[in-house]
Design a protein around this nucleic acid. Sequence first.
RNA 1: GGUCCCGUGGUGUAGUGGUCUAACACGCCUCCCUGUCAAGGAGGAGAUCGUCAGUUCAAAUCUGAUCGGGAUCGCCA
Length: 599
Amino acid sequence: MYKDTNCGEPREATVGSQVTVAGWVHRRRDHGNLIFIDLRDRSGLLQVVFNPEYGEKAHDLAGSLRSEWVVQITGKVVSRLPGAENPDLPTGMVELSATDLVVLNRSLTPPFEIVDDSEVDANTRLKYRFIDLRRPRMQEILKLRHKVTHIMWDYLTEKEFTQVETPILIKSTPEGARDYVVPSRVHPGDFYALPQSPQQLKQLLMVSGVERYFQIARCFRDEDLRADRQPEHTQLDFEMSFVHQDDVMAVVEELYMKIANETRPDAKIPATFPRLTYAEAMERFGSDKPDLRFGMELTTITETAASSDARVFQAVASSGGSIRGFVATGCGNYGRRQTDNLTEFAKSSGAQGLVFIALDESAPSIDALEEDHIKSPLKKFLSLDVIKKIATEMGAEPGDLMLIVAGTEKLANTVLSNLRGEMAKRLDLADPNEFSFVWVYDFPLFEWEEELNKFEPAHHVFSSPKAEHMDYLESDPGKVIGTLWDLVCNGSEMGSGSIRIHDKDLQTRLFNIIGYTEDQINDRFGQLLTAFTYGAPPHGGMGLGLDRLVAILAGESAIREVIAFPKTQSAYDPLFEAPSPIEDQQLEELHVRIVMPKT
RNA sequence: GGUCCCGUGGUGUAGUGGUCUAACACGCCUCCCUGUCAAGGAGGAGAUCGUCAGUUCAAAUCUGAUCGGGAUCGCCA
């Protein structure tokens, strides 16, 4: 070894010992005859002092050191001079008095500083990701991610799960997300696809009698990127045989509790994860992934609003729409600019407009509201009585701002849940140190796709309908609830699970409802259906996003920050400069011809 | 595919029609310095302001296009 001690280790207890350390020159403070170096390795920082009295050659050489040079230093751990201690460093009571210095490698001046608080352009960071990852913060995240997966392995092993790897080169199944495809050299004209998830494979493993499978699996989707979406992401994928919904949830709940407690002991975590039905989540929060860290729940006021003289409300109500809203507590004093801003926000989420009713805090009570206490663009059309009634229904008090959206139920929900999140951000209501896990269950199995004029699976086609809904699978698919649930935390979807179908006939019925032809079914799912005819056990499981989990634990909003080598928003890797053209010979071998898009 | 924000020495920012021959901080280079820890002091180098076109007597600054980054809608079973 080039070192016998890590930089972060020396303490007062080790004073007097002779040690050799190795690492990167983090900073140099040259006083001429006395030179200080902060030496950095994965364990932390150690101050090294070069004094010609103790090592003349080392001192001479130390004068030429520069940032990020890699060095090996031998010396004695000594107490710092009284008054020269640095309480900000764990090793701050001591320093290394250097006697020998070896330069193991030099470094160019790095393109940016290796410190946590510099906000460097994303492109530069990714181009020099190997330097970016030297930042203590990034090292911390890499270790956090490792710790999370380690706990997963340990916990699931203890629960008698078997880890099984599944192929990366598999088959394209064109529904759902766009596939990444790989041309086959051996089969001209044919392509593999990278898996969007190991869904069918893990179900096949259940048929194989594995009973408890897990994998920390890479999943690929060729869709546009977002802060929380990369072309490849990692899932904790698992599946269990002979289980019901509660059995699956119990595993995840215990595991995630353990992960959160062990990695973030400082954070607030619910003792058990609350459960909401999909219908309740939509009703109370307008979203199937509600953030439960704050209130501002939604209220439906369709009838009361429609009883006013406001034509917007009347029109929406009579066309079967919904008028809903929530109370932004203490925002009754919002001025024109702020309300305009919120209207703008609502419109960007698809709303026609935003109706607000501001109640001045000088009003003694809702009952005693007077015209002067009210500000609203619809004031002319809303009688005092109607406003009082709306305020009472919504639970508003003087000094509050009521935000109301009218439209189809779906639109009102989308807009209001976005607006609710936005208000929480503005009012700083969401505690970043709280992990508000919640189960959302009883999802509908199908969604009506307006544009395609047909039903599509709300999650995926393998989820089992509730037994009591089997009868109207064909007659009214929209009403069918699946044994299908999500794990949600702080307003983002952390994973999705279900009890699967294990019966060929039922699975075929589901395929028929969403309009697959027999050929399509056989081509894409033949292997699964065949397997089902050879004694498939009842089974269920989940796929849980690892990147999003680590991001939430790390307090990061973009999963890019918790992936060692991520891609930019245009799915480009500035470090490797991927994707890139390949040699003509490679194309030839793969039987692929390039056709550039017309510009 | 749409919308919005950003692009100025190595890094982060300021400058929004002439005063820009482009400012500041950090970093970098040289020298001085034995107790610093974001060391200090003195001096120095480094940018045709993402690119292209246009408007103008005059463009970092205005307009258009384009490229790149980011946010978001569509998309993401």
